[in-house]
Structures are given as structure tokens and as C-alpha cells.
Simulated scan of single mutants.
Amino acid sequence: MENAYGKLAAWVYHLDKPIGHSFGDLEYYRERLAGCTGAILEPATGNGRILIPLLESGLDIEGFDASEEMLHYCRQECLQRNLNPRLTRQKFQDFTGPRRYEAIIMPAGSFQLITDTASALALLQRCYDNLLPGGRLILDTDNSKEIIQSKGALRSWKVSDNERLTLSSSDPDINYVQQTTLTYLRYEHWQDGLLTHSELDLFCLRWWGIHELTFALRAAGFTDVIVSGGYQHGRAPGNDDAIISFEARRP
């Protein structure tokens, strides 16, 4: 299954990207949302890496994710901190909320998990429809160079003295026409030197050109599109920026 984030994938994600771990995105979103008094939504909230620190900053933020395993970690971490945000299991293509939002955020390239172009455009429209007038959509994309030039690797995480998780990834299969990559990920759980469980995940991403995504946002009805490089708001992206951020407003 594509981008499934099953039990082992979610476990690895939580070990590798714990709550508050930042690539520069946490500080960026905290700054961009400063002064926001209305509700905020984070689709694909995952284990709460971004959502929980923003909650602790006093923001009214909720999230959803398609993976029950990822939501388990998010709920567990919230419980440990006496936080009780609204967390639901939903998918990009049909999410609904009980209210409209002052901001919708998609950090860390989660928008690129949607590889079908029509579905991605429909999500932008759904975000627009779920924002209050004046509300903002803020999302990140990986530079296409970072996606295309990525290489397969083997990584491991020590869980205990006799327990380890490993992740092996293939070189990406690149479709230049569809602007997508497909990477095979194998997660393995080892205990006392024996393999106890493994999962295969098909990890798919779509890359976007800056002008292409800007046009898509405007086609959905957004205005005041600002494109920034390297988590420096308002600075035009450069060729070497790993992350490109988009901010757009519903009029």
C-alpha cells in the first residue's frame, strides 16, 4: 500500500522524529501563526511532532491522519502532557471538520504524498472551502532536486540492548512525466538477533514547480501567494533551498 505508515513505519517515524524535532519548520510555523486566535488544522498530523509544540504555545490546533498507528503515538504524547486536541482518522480526499479554520498547515512536504494531480488540486480546493475569509493555507514542498537525487540507504535504531529497528530504502523509481517518485521501503524489527516482523511500504511523492503550484493555488481561489525559501518568510527560493514554503490567503 502506498504511504501507509503501518506499525513499524510509525514506530520508526516516532523514534526518528520525536515531538518537537525540527528541521526549521517548527520555528517557522510558530512564527507564521503568532497572533492567530482562531482554529488551526493540520492534515497528516502524524505523531504530533509539530501539532503538540504548537498546542503548548497556546494555539487552538487540531489534526487528522490516515494512519491509526501514527495517531496512536500522537494521542499517547498528548495524554502524557494533559493535552486534549481533536484528533481524527481521515484522508486528504474527504476530510471534514466541525468548523472553519483561520489557518491550515501542511509542514514537511506532506502535501506531496498526494501523487495524483487531480486529487492534489481537489485538496487545495477543499482547504480553501474549509478556511474562514482571510484564512491562510501554509504548506511546504521539497525542492524537486532533493527528491530526484535521493539515494537508497540502510538505517537502524536501537530500541533496547537486544532490540533494533532497521529501514532499508531503494533508489527512487522516477517518472518525469507524472513528476513522481516511487521508493520501496522495508521496515524490520529485530530481537535477540532474529527478525520478528517486517513491513514493505511503497513511498510515493510528487514534486511541484514553484509557478505550477502558485497557479494551482490561484485556480483554487487563493490570493496573496507568497513563496519562501529555507524557512525564511518572504525570501525568494534559491536553487539550493531544500524546502520551499507557500502561503496563500482566502479572500
Rank of each mutant, 00 (worst) to 15 (best):
H189T: 14
A153F: 07
E102F: 01
L33A: 07
Q76G: 01
C127G: 08
E27A: 14
L83Y: 12
S156Q: 14
N162F: 13
L195P: 07
Y187L: 08
L121S: 08
G109L: 08
D171I: 07
G209R: 05
P251S: 14
A118V: 12
R49M: 07
D140K: 09
P237M: 06
A120E: 09
E56F: 03
L202F: 05
E2P: 04
L132C: 05
L217P: 01
Y184K: 09
I105Y: 13
W207H: 14
R126A: 06
D192V: 08
A236M: 11
C36T: 11
A44Y: 03
A66W: 06
I174E: 04
E31P: 14
D65R: 07
R136E: 01
R75Y: 03
G97W: 01
L87K: 05
G238H: 10
L200R: 11
D142C: 05
T117P: 02
L41M: 12
K7L: 06
S170I: 04
F23N: 15
M70S: 02
E146I: 15
D201I: 00
E146F: 15
I244F: 15
Q178F: 12
N162I: 10
L15H: 15
T180Y: 14
P107A: 09
H72G: 04
R136I: 00
A153W: 02
P98S: 05
V227S: 11
G63C: 04
S245K: 11
M1I: 01
F215E: 10
R75A: 11
A44W: 01
N175Q: 14
H72P: 00
